[in-house]
Amino acid sequence: MWLKDSSIGRKLVMSITGTFLVLFLLFHGTMNLCLVIDDIFGTTAYNWICSMLGANWYAIIGTLIIALAVVVHFAYAIVLTIQNRRARGNDRYAVEARQEGVDWASKNMLALGIIVLGFIVLHLYNFWFKMQFAELTGIHTSMFDPHDGSTIVKALFTDGWCGIVYCLLYIVWLCALWFHLSHGVWSALQTMGLSNTKWLARIKVIGTVVATLTVGLFMVVILYFLGVNIGQMCA
């Protein structure tokens, strides 16, 4: 199977799963923005989306597909890294200089990916465990109603000093994600062959824009709650 046995095939799997996860993040980030809108205008858009997804069959299937994409993306990353280290050989260079135009992120994609993945575990515990998991199993995993996502999120991020720590943790996560995407997005397009002398510069800009937009959507929400939290603590 060429998606497993050829180097371009393996890279194609990385780029397709990666692109799929970015699209999911864009949806997730847009959904999160409703939290801020709800909080300012007193609407209930976020909880409406939560109830629409909830533990319905299509949301479960969607979750499983996303989980599969994460697993495949990560498993391939490990295999590719091992193969690449082996291809490099046992003797390392004594002096290694930086090349101009080579992004730091592009040389540290696995490390950044591991940071992102580590925080996903925390994130699943913080929210998914209290929402979809609780709804699915009927186990009370927290003191909150699993349907009231909006309250669960607000409770975590506006919980005094604890809230501040969580906000900072999530900001670290988002920064790692930005660096990962700043190389990942354009690299995925390049791997799919969507580049030429004109478009190489353009897909790099597209990559930066997509990375910034994706991370920005999440960052706005975190910064908003950080502000609300600090305001409450000072009051």
Binding site: L80, G101, V102, S106, H183, S187, L194, S195, L200
Partner: peptide, 27 residues
């Protein structure tokens, strides 16, 4: 190894061969 589009190759190429050729090979 497997290409990860870091671009060190093109930066060090004595003939300045562009990364866009890699995209063509992929395609």
């Amino acid at each position: 190894g497997n290409c990860t589009n870091t671009g060190a190759c093109a930066a060090e190429c004595p003939k300045q061969v562009s990364l866009t050729h890699i995209a063509r090979l992929n395609r």
